[in-house]
């Protein structure tokens, strides 16, 4: 397998060219993500009911790695509780930092090759860092009872 084939697997490029859950959710929790060094931008929209992510969408511009990672992330966290989403995020970041991939990451495991490409780690984790920032703001928001 060539260098390119091993890195840009078909499913990754499919998510890049045909991103899932792309768009905005009016009135939803909204978080911006930015990689200032390369200019990648991401906006994440989270419709949260109680402690569950009912819907999630994203917009933005960036490379195949950052956009496919965001697309796959939305699939992975939709319907999950905030705690579960954070757990997936932790496992994904572990994998990108070179630890063995957790099976429940599903298609996201295809991004494991990035762990060997330090220059692209920030691309792969942009959506996840943005997700964690968004969930942190939920945690810190005053509870309305």
């Amino acid at each position: 397998m060539s260098f390119l084939d091993s890195l840009y697997k078909e499913i990754i490029l499919d998510h890049y060219k045909n991103p899932r859950n792309r768009g905005e959710i009016a009135g939803a929790l909204h978080q911006e993500g930015l990689n200032p060094s390369c200019g990648d931008e991401l906006e994440l929209f989270l419709a949260i009911d109680e402690d569950r992510i009912e819907d999630v969408k994203f917009t933005g511009e960036g490379c195949a790695i950052s956009q496919s990672s965001a697309s796959m992330m939305t699939q992975a966290i939709k319907g999950k509780t905030l705690k579960e989403a954070l757990e997936i995020s932790r496992k994904f970041k572990d994998m990108i930092q070179g630890k063995p991939a957790a099976e429940e990451l599903g298609d996201l495991q295809l991004l494991q090759g990035i762990s060997k490409l330090h220059a692209r780690v920030k691309c792969a984790t942009l959506a996840w860092v943005t997700l964690e920032q968004a969930l942190k703001s939920v945690e810190e928001a005053p509870k309305i009872s």
Binding site: S2, L4, L7, C38, C63
Partner: peptide, 13 residues
């Protein structure tokens, strides 16, 4: 149609 980061990674290869 291809992001420059992906181009740079491919050329690095």
């Amino acid at each position: 149609g291809t992001h420059p980061h992906d181009v740079a990674t491919a050329l690095d290869g």
